[in-house]
Computed example of a mutant assay.
Amino acid sequence: MKKVGIITLNGYSNYGNRLQNYALQKFIEMHGFECETIIDKSRIDKGYLIQTEKNKIKKLLNKDFNQVYSKLKKIINKNKIQAINKRRENIFEDFSKTYINETDFYIEIGKIREDLEERYEYLVTGSDQIWNPFSSSVSEVSFLTFAKKYKRISYAPSFGVYDIPESERKNYKKWLSEMNYISVREEAGAKIVKDLTGRDVPVVIDPTMILTKEKWLSIAKKSKSKPNKKYILTYLLGGGNKEHKQKVKEIAKQYDLDIVNLGDIKDVEHYITGPSEFIDYINDASVFITDSFHGCVFSMLLDTPFVVCTRVGQDSKTSMESRIDTFLDKFELHDRRYSNINNINIFSCDYTKSNELLNIEREKAWDYLSRALNCDEKILQECGN
């Protein structure tokens, strides 16, 4: 069977990243290909230098007792946080080993295997913010420059910005012009491609939206820390402001609900939750309060009522808010904004129209990838849509 390689953001900490990687793999497999994600070590920030413990001790010896005590307390707290994050990271890594076909080798700029291109019929870059010019990890590898032009395909990558800085425009123009098939995740991305290359490219849905509720539930897993009673679920990457937190407490008290905070490290038992548990938590929540794009997406996919907050520290001009706005507009879910929380039944959400629109978007995505992978009708019929 012919094989496709995926280039995406590699890491074991973000629900959306892991789940989009899994979904893109499944979407490609649905077209009759084997698929694996290539580990790209170009994405390691080499500019970060770790201070040695020896140097830390030397600096502490020159401080007074209160300064030393304060510093040691911070170090201890930092170590606790690192230990918690490491436990969480291990769970994410286990998910990846179970559900995502990752290569047992890695590539980086200047260290591309000679046989890499020959391993794959096509290479697909996406989705996530793999083309963000302000990321220290973005490189020509993200644009598949190591492969022949006809093999280069993008599926729903994001630039994460509205404009490419002048210093990067020359590279981006060259790299984008040499791509065979381009699709992007947001309208802003399509405008960037048009501006730099003159090409009109399709805006397609995030790959997580391709898979059905039944397929997502097939990899869901119940957490040992999941409440036995009904609960209100929160996942606030911006931490949430006082108003958001107070509102959650009021709702929980009024309706006798437990509170599960997936994004709060202070709620350790729920914070240490993997992607499979993330799906199960959303599926069974009475209502989901979130500022996450993928939080909104999985609410719709799993028929769970949700309320979306503006992420603390961001506004409507940011990439994150832009893609959430695009999602709410595209699927006619404007009323689920936090500003309407007192005017809607937060425990009920009619997804009838949204599902009709989702099916249309799935057809567009299917048609695009079928053309990009040069699939004939017979293969598509055998693999099923």
Score class of each variant (00 low, 15 high):
Ile39Asp: 00
Ser319Thr: 09
Leu72Met: 09
Ser183Ala: 11
Asp291Glu: 10
Ala285Asn: 01
Leu328His: 09
Arg199His: 10
Leu144Gln: 05
Phe159Pro: 07
Arg323Ile: 09
Asn10Asp: 02
Thr234Arg: 07
Asn55His: 12
Asn85Lys: 10
Gly16Val: 02
Thr37Trp: 08
Pro207Asp: 09
Leu49Gly: 09
Ile210Gln: 14
Gly263Ala: 04
Ile6Asn: 00
Lys173Gln: 10
Asp315His: 04
Ala285Ser: 07
Gly32Trp: 00
Tyr338His: 11
Asp267Lys: 06
Tyr99Leu: 06
Arg169Cys: 07
Leu60His: 04
Glu277Gly: 08
Asp329Met: 13
Tyr48Glu: 13
Cys349Phe: 12
Val260Met: 00
Ile360Gly: 13
Asp200Met: 14
Arg337Trp: 10
Ile379Leu: 12
Leu233Gly: 00
Asp264Ile: 00
Asp40Pro: 08
Ser154Ala: 03
Glu53Asp: 15
Phe65Leu: 10
Glu166Arg: 13
Phe327Ala: 03
Asp258Gly: 02
Asn171Ile: 02
Lys247Gly: 06
Thr208His: 07
Thr290Ile: 07
Asp64Ile: 11
Tyr99Ser: 08
Glu363Phe: 14
Thr145Ser: 15
Ser139Pro: 09
Tyr235Asn: 06
Ile210Phe: 15
Tyr162Lys: 15
Ile360Arg: 12
Lys59Arg: 09
Asn85Thr: 01
Ile272Thr: 04
Arg336Met: 10
Gln25Phe: 00
Asp206Arg: 00
Met300Ser: 12
Arg18Tyr: 08
Lys26Arg: 06
Tyr15Gly: 04
Ile84Lys: 05
Leu211Ser: 06
Phe293Gln: 04
Asp303Trp: 15
Ile112Ala: 04
Asn180Thr: 03
Ile265Gly: 09
Tyr155Gln: 02
Ser158Pro: 04
Ser292Trp: 08
Ile192His: 08
Ile259Asn: 01
Lys59Glu: 11
Glu118Val: 12
Lys46Gln: 14
Asp264Ala: 03
Thr208Glu: 09
Gln129Lys: 04
Asp315Ser: 02
Met209Thr: 05
Phe288His: 13
Cys296Glu: 03
Lys191Cys: 02
Lys213Tyr: 08
Lys59Trp: 06
Phe105Cys: 04
Lys224Gly: 04
Ile112Pro: 05
Val204Thr: 07
Ser299Lys: 09
Leu72Pro: 03
Arg323Glu: 02
Val287Ala: 09
Glu377Leu: 08
Glu29Ile: 05
Cys375Leu: 02
Thr145Met: 15
Leu357Glu: 01
Phe105Lys: 01
Ile81Met: 12
Ser225Tyr: 11
Ile75Arg: 12
Phe146Gln: 12
Tyr281Gly: 03
Arg43Gln: 15
Val204Asn: 01
Ile279Glu: 07
Asn374Val: 12
Val201Gln: 06
Glu29Trp: 01
Asp303Glu: 15
Val184Glu: 00
Tyr48Met: 10
Phe331Gln: 05
Val248Glu: 07
Asn132Lys: 08
Lys71Val: 08
Lys148Ala: 15
Asp267Glu: 03
Tyr120Trp: 10
Thr98Asp: 11
Ser348Ala: 10
Glu118Lys: 14
Asn355His: 12
Asp64Pro: 14
Ile205Gln: 08
Tyr150Ser: 14
Asn79Gly: 01
Leu262Gly: 12
Phe159Val: 03
Lys249Gln: 13
